[in-house]
Each structure stands twice: as C-alpha cells, then as structure tokens.
C-alpha cells in the first residue's frame, strides 16, 4: 500500500538532487540560446552553404531522440581524445539539442513580424544593423519569450534522460532511493511531484510573460 511517511521522506534527497536538474536545464537553455542564435543567423544568411549547414543541423537534432544523442556524444568524446566529466557532456548535449529548437523559435518569430516593419525602417534610411538591432530583434525576442519558457519546461523534463549517463539528478537520485528503500511507488511519485512543481512554476512564469508582452 501507499505509505505516506516513506513518500514524505523521499523528498529530502530528491530536492537536493533537483539542483542538478535545474543546473542542467538552465545551462542547457543558455547554451542552446547561444548556439541557436548562431544557427538561426546561418539559416537566414545569404550564403547557401551556411543555410544548408543550418538546415542539416536542425533536421538532424530534431530527428534523433535525445537519449541517442546523449549516448553518441558520451561515447564519441573519449574516442576523439576529449576527457570531460559526464555532467559537461550532458549539458553540452542538452544545449546542442535545444539549439535546434531555439533556432526554429527565433526563425518563426522573425518570420511572423510584418514585413512592413523592416521596409518602413529601410524607407526612413536605417542601416541594416540598425534595422535588425532596433526594429526586428527587440520585437522578435519579446514575441518568442513564451515559446522559450516552453522550451525550458521541455528541457527540465528531458533532463531526466541524463540519468542514463550517471548524473545524480532527480531521476537518478530517485532510482537510488527506490533501490535502497524497496518502495519505488512512493519514491517515483515524489520525483514526479518535484518535476511537476518546477514545471508549474515555469508555466506560470510563461503565462505572466505572455500577458505582459502581448502585442
């Protein structure tokens, strides 16, 4: 039967492990933003080679399951002579995977801006870098904030997969806890509650931003 004391006891180690979940998803989205912006720039560039590279990047990373990406990355690094801790490999994989989705979010936001905005800016004689920096990007970034929060929620959930390369985040910690207490039901439900709490906070933040930035 479901035992409430076991359930409550499971929270302490899991909340402790939640640091890693937050760290991996937080750094993952930061890295994803940097690479995703570059990929989006490549995708919109006038050079066919760059556009092609970006298209393949996005298609590959969105077509391959994250779990497979994690293992490929995890096993490739030692072969090419790079020796990094598992957590670094995990953050980089999550970030690279997120970059594909984030570049599409940027691209969608830029495409959704009315063409008249850029044309009007050009008509009053703004230089291209000003058109981008002062007209297109500020609006595109504001518009895509809710989508980025959504991506962060997806990353929090996806970070459960890095447990397979041995990082002690919520899922891995709950596996260890379940193995020592022999009460997997209570422990895994506790883990689910922590994920739910994190994601409900994030989605509330997303709704707030959506409300604030509604154009």
């Amino acid at each position: 039967m479901f035992s409430i004391p076991v359930f409550l006891q499971a929270f302490e180690p899991l909340i402790w492990a939640a640091r890693y979940t937050l760290l991996i998803s937080g750094l993952g989205i930061a890295l994803g933003l940097v690479i995703g912006t570059l990929i989006c720039a490549a995708r919109l560039s006038p050079y066919a080679a760059l556009r092609g590279f970006a298209a393949v990047w996005v298609s590959f990373l969105r077509g391959v399951p994250l779990l497979v990406q994690l293992l490929v990355f995890y096993y490739t690094l030692p072969v090419i002579g790079i020796d990094v801790p598992a957590i670094v490999a995990a953050v980089v994989t999550v970030g690279i995977c997120a970059s594909a989705y984030i570049s599409e979010i940027w691209r969608g936001a830029i495409a959704a801006l009315p063409k008249g905005q850029a044309e009007a800016a050009a008509a009053i004689g703004m230089a291209p870098h000003h058109i981008w920096g002062r007209v297109i990007l500020p609006q595109a970034v504001t518009m895509s904030l809710p989508a980025l929060i959504n991506e962060l929620i997806l990353l929090v959930k996806a970070s459960s997969l890095v447990s397979v390369v041995g990082i002690l985040e919520i899922t891995r910690a709950s596996q260890a806890q379940a193995a020592t207490t022999f009460r997997p039901l209570e422990v895994y439900i506790a883990a689910a509650c922590i994920y739910l709490a994190i994601n409900l906070c994030l989605s509330a933040l997303g709704r707030y931003l959506e409300h604030r930035t509604a154009i």
Binding site: S160, P184, I189, A191, A192
Partner: peptide
C-alpha cells in the same frame, strides 16, 4: 508536467506495489 521516464518508472516499478 512530468517526464515520460518518471511516468514509466511509476508504472513499471511502482505498479506492483498496488
């Protein structure tokens, strides 16, 4: 709001307890 993996664990490893 919860990861698929954790849902599977609840179902597969937690299920037998109920």
């Amino acid at each position: 709001g919860t990861p698929f993996l954790v849902q599977l664990f609840v179902l597969y490893y937690g299920g037998p307890l109920i």
